[in-house]
Computed example of a mutant assay.
Amino acid sequence: MIDLVPEERAALLLVARAALARALGAPADPPAAPGRLASLRAGVFVSWTVDGERRGSLGAIAPSAPLLEETAAMAVRAALEDPRTPPVTAAELPRARCTVALAAAPEPLDDPGRLDPARQGLSVTHGDHAAVLLPAAAAGQGWGAAEYLKHACLRAGLRADAAALPGTRVLAFEVLEVGDVIGTAG
């Protein structure tokens, strides 16, 4: 799994905030990226909350661009294009809180009992049904591995026990979550 030093974590969050600020018409210079961030690749999920209310969360397990580009694109898409929530506005930007979750390469989940809901994400697909569940969804729920897997299946619109059905593909991946504090706009 990718590990980031504090300066890299801060830079990643500044990239997300600056991208959203520019998309909303606010002035924001792209921050300088410390060393290796410019060449890293990882799946990226970006989530936004405003005043504690979820306002968008989108991402991709497989990277389609270098990490900084992927983070900037997902930050804007999550804040402005998530069909489940109203878009973040320019007036809300100073109160918006961002979380960036980096996803390591997914692997088939061979032993559901070894799943760690605190540090692993899940991707469940069966036919046209698909969902991704990140550790943040399980935080504070008290879910063990079986409950976490059940909720991933349900989020995909499948039966709770769909992971055991033929044709269901379950992938697990390590997740590193990086969250910011309100008012750290770049």
Rank of each mutant, 00 (worst) to 15 (best):
I2E: 07
I2F: 09
I2D: 04
D3F: 14
L4I: 09
L4Q: 10
P6K: 08
E7P: 00
A11I: 01
L13I: 03
V15A: 13
A19E: 02
A19S: 07
L20A: 03
A23S: 13
G25P: 12
G25D: 10
P27H: 15
A32S: 10
A32W: 00
A33R: 05
G35I: 00
R36G: 02
L37K: 08
A38N: 02
A38L: 12
S39M: 06
S39Q: 15
L40S: 11
L40Y: 09
L40R: 14
R41W: 07
S47W: 01
T49K: 14
R55I: 12
G56Q: 01
G56R: 06
S57H: 08
S57Y: 01
G59H: 03
I61M: 11
A62P: 02
P63Q: 13
S64Q: 14
L67K: 03
E69Y: 00
E70Y: 01
T71F: 01
A73S: 14
M74S: 07
A75C: 08
A75Y: 03
E81T: 13
D82H: 11
P83Y: 10
P83E: 08
T85G: 01
V88Y: 09
T89W: 04
A90P: 11
A91M: 05
A91I: 00
E92D: 07
L93V: 11
L93N: 09
P94E: 05
R95W: 06
A96K: 05
R97H: 05
C98P: 03
A101W: 01
A101P: 00
A101C: 14
L102R: 05
P106L: 12
E107Y: 02
L109R: 08
L109T: 03
D110P: 01
R114W: 00
L115R: 03
D116K: 06
S123W: 06
V124T: 11
T125D: 07
D128M: 10
D128N: 11
H129A: 15
H129T: 02
A130C: 01
A131P: 04
A131D: 00
V132A: 06
V132E: 06
L133E: 04
L134F: 03
G140I: 07
G140R: 08
G142T: 06
A145R: 05
A146C: 06
A146N: 04
K150M: 05
A152D: 04
A156N: 13
A160Y: 09
D161G: 07
A162L: 09
A163P: 04
A163M: 04
A164W: 06
L165S: 12
L165Q: 14
G167R: 11
T168N: 04
R169G: 09
A172P: 00
F173V: 06
E174M: 01
E174I: 01
L176A: 13
L176G: 10
E177D: 05
E177G: 10
G179E: 13
G179A: 15
T184W: 11
T184S: 13
T184D: 11
G186H: 10
G186F: 05
